[in-house]
Simulated scan of single mutants.
Amino acid sequence: MDDIKNKVIEILADVTSTDEETVRSWDGQDLFQNGFLDSMGTVELLVQIQDELDINVPVSEFDRSQWNTLDKICDQIRKL
């Protein structure tokens, strides 16, 4: 597992108040459809990504379908 994915897991664990092992088990699942993330959690996720990874995520360009799984979040971060 790469550094970005590990950091995203750490951030998601913090945002969702869940342990990292549980977040790892979500791999491949739709985080919104399965209730792991909601609108407030999404904002917290984006803020933490910006703060901890020093990556600006424009909310105006946020497309939920491109950020709905662990791998997609990592892919979007890599693009930025």
Results as ranks from 00 to 15, higher is better:
residue 1 M to E: 03
residue 1 M to T: 09
residue 1 M to A: 11
residue 2 D to V: 04
residue 2 D to E: 13
residue 2 D to L: 01
residue 3 D to H: 02
residue 5 K to P: 02
residue 5 K to N: 10
residue 5 K to V: 03
residue 7 K to G: 02
residue 9 I to P: 02
residue 9 I to G: 02
residue 9 I to W: 03
residue 10 E to V: 01
residue 10 E to H: 08
residue 12 L to R: 06
residue 12 L to N: 07
residue 12 L to Y: 02
residue 13 A to P: 04
residue 13 A to I: 10
residue 14 D to E: 15
residue 14 D to H: 11
residue 15 V to W: 03
residue 15 V to F: 02
residue 16 T to S: 08
residue 17 S to A: 13
residue 18 T to D: 08
residue 18 T to H: 07
residue 19 D to Y: 07
residue 19 D to A: 08
residue 20 E to C: 08
residue 21 E to M: 11
residue 21 E to Y: 11
residue 21 E to F: 03
residue 21 E to N: 12
residue 21 E to C: 06
residue 22 T to F: 14
residue 22 T to S: 15
residue 22 T to K: 15
residue 22 T to M: 15
residue 23 V to R: 01
residue 23 V to Q: 01
residue 24 R to V: 10
residue 25 S to W: 07
residue 25 S to F: 04
residue 26 W to P: 00
residue 27 D to F: 07
residue 27 D to E: 13
residue 29 Q to E: 14
residue 29 Q to T: 12
residue 30 D to E: 08
residue 30 D to H: 04
residue 31 L to F: 01
residue 31 L to D: 01
residue 31 L to P: 00
residue 31 L to K: 00
residue 32 F to N: 05
residue 32 F to S: 06
residue 33 Q to I: 07
residue 33 Q to G: 06
residue 34 N to P: 05
residue 34 N to T: 10
residue 34 N to A: 04
residue 35 G to D: 11
residue 35 G to F: 03
residue 36 F to D: 01
residue 36 F to K: 06
residue 37 L to G: 01
residue 37 L to T: 09
residue 37 L to F: 00
residue 37 L to N: 08
residue 38 D to Y: 02
residue 38 D to M: 04
residue 39 S to N: 12
residue 39 S to K: 08
residue 40 M to S: 14
residue 41 G to I: 13
residue 41 G to C: 12
residue 42 T to K: 06
residue 42 T to W: 07
residue 43 V to Q: 11
residue 43 V to A: 07
residue 43 V to K: 05
residue 44 E to L: 08
residue 46 L to E: 05
residue 47 V to Q: 11
residue 47 V to C: 06
residue 48 Q to V: 04
residue 49 I to G: 00
residue 49 I to L: 12
residue 49 I to R: 03
residue 50 Q to E: 15
residue 50 Q to M: 11
residue 51 D to S: 14
residue 51 D to F: 08
residue 51 D to E: 15
residue 52 E to K: 13
residue 52 E to H: 11
residue 53 L to I: 10
residue 54 D to S: 12
residue 55 I to M: 12
residue 56 N to P: 01
residue 56 N to T: 15
residue 56 N to I: 14
residue 56 N to R: 11
residue 56 N to F: 14
residue 57 V to P: 08
residue 57 V to D: 04
residue 57 V to T: 05
residue 57 V to Y: 05
residue 58 P to L: 09
residue 59 V to T: 14
residue 59 V to I: 15
residue 60 S to H: 10
residue 61 E to H: 09
residue 63 D to V: 14
residue 63 D to F: 10
residue 64 R to A: 13
residue 64 R to K: 14
residue 65 S to C: 11
residue 65 S to I: 14
residue 65 S to K: 13
residue 65 S to N: 14
residue 66 Q to L: 10
residue 67 W to T: 05
residue 67 W to S: 05
residue 67 W to A: 01
residue 69 T to M: 05
residue 70 L to W: 03
residue 70 L to Q: 03
residue 73 I to P: 05
residue 73 I to L: 06
residue 74 C to I: 01
residue 74 C to Y: 02
residue 75 D to C: 05
residue 76 Q to N: 13
residue 76 Q to E: 14
residue 76 Q to P: 07
residue 76 Q to V: 03
residue 76 Q to I: 07
residue 77 I to L: 04
residue 77 I to R: 00
residue 77 I to H: 04
residue 78 R to I: 08
residue 79 K to G: 10
residue 80 L to I: 12
residue 80 L to T: 12
residue 80 L to W: 09
